[in-house]
Simulated assay, not measured.
Amino acid sequence: MSTSAAAHPRFAEALAALGLHVPVRAFPDATRTAVQAAEAIGCDLGQIVKSLIFAADGVPVLVLMDGASRVDVGLVRTELGAAEVRRADADLVRETTGYAIGGVPPFGHRTRTTVLADRRLLDHETVWAAAGTPHTVFPVAPAELVRHAGATLADVRERAE
Rank of each mutant, 00 (worst) to 15 (best):
M1S: 12
M1F: 04
S2V: 02
T3N: 04
A5L: 09
A5G: 03
R10D: 09
A12Y: 03
A12H: 00
A12M: 06
L18A: 14
G19H: 11
H21A: 15
P23L: 03
P23Y: 00
R25Q: 09
F27L: 09
P28V: 14
A30W: 04
R32E: 03
R32F: 08
A34M: 07
A34E: 02
V35M: 05
V35Q: 11
A38C: 13
E39N: 11
I41P: 02
C43H: 03
G46Y: 09
Q47W: 05
I48N: 00
K50A: 06
L52I: 15
L52M: 15
I53G: 07
I53Q: 01
G58D: 07
G58A: 11
V59P: 02
V59L: 09
D66V: 10
D66L: 10
D66I: 09
G67S: 07
G67A: 07
S69V: 02
R70Q: 08
D72P: 04
R77P: 01
R87I: 10
V93I: 14
T97P: 04
A100E: 11
A100R: 14
G102S: 14
G103F: 08
V104F: 12
V104T: 06
R110E: 01
V115Y: 09
L116T: 10
A117V: 08
D118R: 08
D118Y: 12
R119T: 09
R119F: 12
R120Q: 13
H124F: 15
V127G: 07
W128L: 10
A130V: 05
A130R: 02
A131Q: 01
A131W: 00
G132K: 08
T133L: 14
V137I: 04
V137C: 07
P139F: 14
A141D: 12
P142K: 15
P142S: 13
L145W: 05
V146R: 10
G150C: 08
T152E: 15
A154N: 13
A154V: 12
A154P: 11
D155C: 07
D155A: 15
A160T: 09
E161K: 15
